[in-house]
């Protein structure tokens, strides 16, 4: 089976800023593949290269075996791209936008309707409304419909869930899961670590480099130490106290607790006594499984 994307040694600079630094990865056909990293990590630059909109300074990207630089004309027919910024025509209606995108790609809405029907039915009651007047969740559904209307083999979604509320976000991922049965390869970027579990595989990306590529559960299990969740009402004092404890390697706030790693990987009475001497007596400590974000932190801290 052919890979959907093969990237090797991809680098891109803008002036003195290195956006991508020697990136290599492959995406299999029909995979849902996530690029997870903060703003400025290089996600958008990478997606522009994959979608043939930008030429890398170094390295090669092949999409379905076709080079993105030399074969861009051919590839564009097979790629659906949803940029991070809402980029539909705000002064055209829902229906007009969809027809426009279908026509540009030499097809009709009718021909590929089955592909978008799950998504489009949510907004169809508003098909006469101008795109600029839609709510965030509806814009997102329309943009996705437009990116799919020419039946692409590769769907590229740049931060589709940024600024969208939790309910719409969850619905969006459900829609992506349903697209699997149409054999579409999907790459999606997000700054939100918790979305990793909705992907088959993810690449953690930071400062233009890929830290790791794997299935989310394998990335999580790669956490190298035992992880403890420490709770106290006095969070601020707790973080300070834990960092003073001689056995501590890392202590980071994490939701309602502080995630702690220790040199000898075990909690003993001396920690409780230490915290009590620091004036924190309500401590509760449990061992906790590491998540993607814990692993991301660990990889970021790893000395080069």
């Amino acid at each position: 089976m052919q890979n959907a994307i093969e990237a090797s040694g991809v680098s891109k600079k803008f002036g003195s800023t290195t956006a991508l630094d020697d990136i290599s990865f492959t995406v299999g056909e029909s995979e849902v593949f996530g690029f997870i990293g903060p703003d400025g990590a290089g996600k958008t630059t990478l997606f522009r290269i994959i979608t043939t909109l930008l030429i890398p300074d170094e390295g090669v990207v092949n999409v379905f075996g076709t080079n993105t630089v030399t074969g861009y004309r051919e590839l564009r027919k097979n790629i659906g791209y949803m940029p991070g910024r809402f980029s539909l025509y705000q002064d055209l209606s829902v229906e007009e936008n969809l027809n426009f995108y279908a026509t540009v790609f030499g097809t009709t809405v009718k021909e590929n309707y089955d592909l978008i029907s799950d998504i489009y039915t949510h907004i169809e009651p508003f098909k006469k409304r101008l795109a600029g007047q839609l709510s965030g969740g509806m814009k997102q559904k329309l943009a996705l419909s437009c990116a799919l209307i020419h039946k692409p083999k590769l769907l590229v979604l740049d931060e589709p869930t940024t600024g969208v509320d939790a309910v719409s976000r969850s619905e969006f991922w459900d829609m992506l899961s349903k697209l699997r049965r149409h054999n579409i390869t999907i790459i999606v970027s997000t700054p939100y670590m918790d979305e990793a579990t909705r992907c088959d595989r993810v690449a953690l990306i930071q400062a233009g480099k890929i830290l790791v590529v794997d299935k989310p559960e394998i990335i999580q299990s790669g956490f190298s130490r035992k992880l403890f969740a420490v709770k106290s009402v006095m969070k601020h004092q707790l973080i300070g106290a834990l960092r003073k404890y001689p056995e501590t390697i890392t202590a980071w706030p994490f939701g309602d607790s502080v995630h702690l790693t220790l040199r000898d990987n075990k909690i003993d009475q001396s920690l409780y006594s230490f915290l009590e001497r620091e004036g924190i007596s309500d401590t509760v400590i449990i061992e906790t499984p590491a998540g993607i974000e814990d692993r991301f932190l660990e990889l970021m801290n790893k000395p080069e």
Partner: peptide, 29 residues
């Protein structure tokens, strides 16, 4: 949109601020 380390450093600033008696009212998706 910030990296996990920056994010934690930021929450630490928030905790410090709150511990100093300032109320922090957060809206988020």
């Amino acid at each position: 949109g910030v990296d996990p380390i920056t994010r934690r450093q930021f929450w630490e600033m928030i905790y410090e601020t709150a511990a100093g008696g300032i109320t922090v009212f957060v809206t988020t998706h």
